[in-house]
Design a protein around this nucleic acid. Structure first.
Length: 112
DNA sequence: TACATGACTATCC
DNA sequence: GGGATAGCCATGT
C-alpha cells in the first residue's frame, strides 16, 4: 500500500523530462519537505514502472547512487545513456547542466 | 507506542 | 580526494 507521500514522490519523478536528471533533495524540496531519506525510500519502493523514471534520480553530488531492478546500478546507468545522459565512473557527465529544477518549469527562468 | 531501517546529505578526520 | 560519523523524515515491524 502506497502512502500519499510515496505517490507524491512518484508523481514528481514523472515531471522529469527525458535526457534530464534530478536529485533526491530537489524532489524533497518540490514536495515541500526535507525528508530526503524518506524520498529515497519512496523512490526505491516504486513499482519500477516506465511511468516512473526512477533512474533519472541521482544523488546530490552527481553520483548514480543506488537502484533496484534489472542489474541494479549498471541498469540505471544504461537507461540514462539511452536517454542521452552520459555517465562516467558512476557519475553523471555535466551533471550540473543536466540537473532538473522543478522551479524552472513553474517560474520564468529569464526572471524580471 | 517504541525501535530499527533506508535508492540520502552534510560535516569531520 | 577518500572514509567514517551524525542528522534527517517516513515506513515497517
Amino acid at each position: 500500500m502506497a502512502t500519499v507521500f510515496q505517490q507524491r514522490v512518484w508523481d514528481a519523478l514523472r515531471l522529469i523530462p527525458r535526457g534530464r536528471v534530478t536529485t533526491y533533495g530537489e524532489i524533497a524540496r518540490y514536495l515541500g519537505t526535507g525528508a530526503i531519506r524518506a524520498v529515497g525510500t519512496a523512490v526505491g519502493k516504486n513499482p519500477d514502472a516506465p511511468e516512473v523514471p526512477c533512474h533519472r534520480v541521482v544523488r546530490g553530488d552527481g553520483t548514480i547512487g543506488q537502484y533496484s531492478g534489472g542489474d541494479g546500478v549498471p541498469t540505471k546507468i544504461a537507461l540514462l545513456k539511452e536517454e542521452g545522459v552520459p555517465v562516467a565512473n558512476k557519475r553523471v557527465v555535466a551533471f550540473d547542466q543536466r540537473m532538473w529544477c522543478y522551479s524552472q518549469s513553474t517560474t520564468n527562468p529569464s526572471g524580471s
